Computed example of a mutant assay.
Amino acid sequence: MISAAYCRLMARYNTWQNTSLVTAADGLTHQDRWKDRGAFFRSIAATLNHLYWADALILQRLKGNEHPEDHIEHSLTSPSDWDEFKTLRSRRDEEIEAWAARLLDADLAGMVAWRPGEGSTRVEKPRALCVMQLFNHQTHHRGQIHAMLTAAGTLPGPTDLEMLP
């Protein structure tokens, strides 16, 4: 289905795209980043925060933590400080790249199990599917952020995979 090489490529792509979006958002005011723009998570900042926290949850599940919500609280409002967000996002991207760098093809086999939110129902899905979800989820929401940034008058860089440096 997928390979460790695919994961490394997508981890690099994730970092590249997040850097592009953050650089574009640097040109906005705090109010502009938090302005309700009609997207699912309303604002650029809230959508960026959703991605930051969702990446943490999915990574923890992939690492075998069945209860990641016990120590990772999803938040659309935190971090609210832009400089703090940029530091944390960069660290999360480094974490994703380091995780992908250690992967072997055999690591993508098997199942991932977790107990979402309230913890009553155990969910179990193929590991390769969960890895694909990590990268697909990022791409989906980055597209929303890209559209909001463009509408706000900033211009993020290219998104085409073949443009990846």
Rank of each mutant, 00 (worst) to 15 (best):
Q138D: 11
G117Q: 14
C130Y: 02
H146Q: 10
V123S: 08
A113T: 13
H141R: 06
G153M: 10
L149W: 01
T150V: 14
R115H: 15
T154C: 15
V131G: 01
G117P: 05
H137V: 05
G153A: 11
P156G: 08
Q138S: 12
C130M: 15
L129V: 12
M111K: 13
Q133C: 04
A152C: 10
V123G: 01
P126W: 00
F135Q: 02
A113D: 11
W114E: 02
E124Q: 15
A151F: 05
R115G: 03
R115Q: 15
T139M: 10
G117A: 14
P126Y: 04
R122S: 12
G110L: 01
R127T: 04
R122W: 06
M111Q: 15
R115Y: 13
I145Q: 03
V112M: 03
F135I: 04
P126S: 07
P116G: 10
E118L: 14
G110A: 07
G157T: 08
G119F: 10
E118Q: 14
L149C: 07
L129P: 00
R127L: 04
F135D: 01
R115F: 08
K125V: 14
P116S: 11
H141E: 07
A147S: 14
G153F: 09
Q144Y: 09
P156R: 07
M132K: 09
H140R: 05
F135V: 02
G143E: 06
Q144R: 05
V131W: 03
M132N: 11
L134A: 05
V123F: 11
Q138W: 00
S120G: 13
H137I: 05
A113L: 01
T150F: 09
L149V: 05
H146G: 04
I145A: 02
G153R: 09
A147K: 05
S120M: 12
A109S: 13
R115E: 09
P156S: 11
L129S: 09
Q144G: 05
V123M: 15
A128D: 15
A152L: 08
C130G: 01
H146C: 08
Q138A: 14
G143L: 07
G119I: 13
N136Y: 03
H141M: 08
N136H: 09
R115T: 12
A151I: 00
Q144M: 11
M132E: 10
W114Q: 02
R142L: 00
A152F: 07
S120R: 13
G119Y: 11
M148F: 09
L155Y: 09
P126L: 01
G117I: 08
G157D: 06
G117K: 13
L149E: 00
P156L: 09
M111W: 11
G157Q: 08
R142V: 02
H140W: 08
G119R: 15
G110E: 02
W114A: 00
T139C: 03
R142T: 00
L155Q: 12
M111V: 14
G110D: 04
T154V: 15
L134P: 00
F135E: 01
G143F: 03
N136M: 10
H141L: 06
M111D: 13
D107S: 09
R115V: 06
V131T: 11
E118R: 15
A152W: 06
T121E: 15
M111R: 12
S120C: 10
E118F: 12
Q144W: 09
G157E: 04
V123D: 01
W114M: 03
H140S: 05
R127I: 01
N136W: 02
A109D: 14
H140E: 05
D107I: 01
G110P: 02
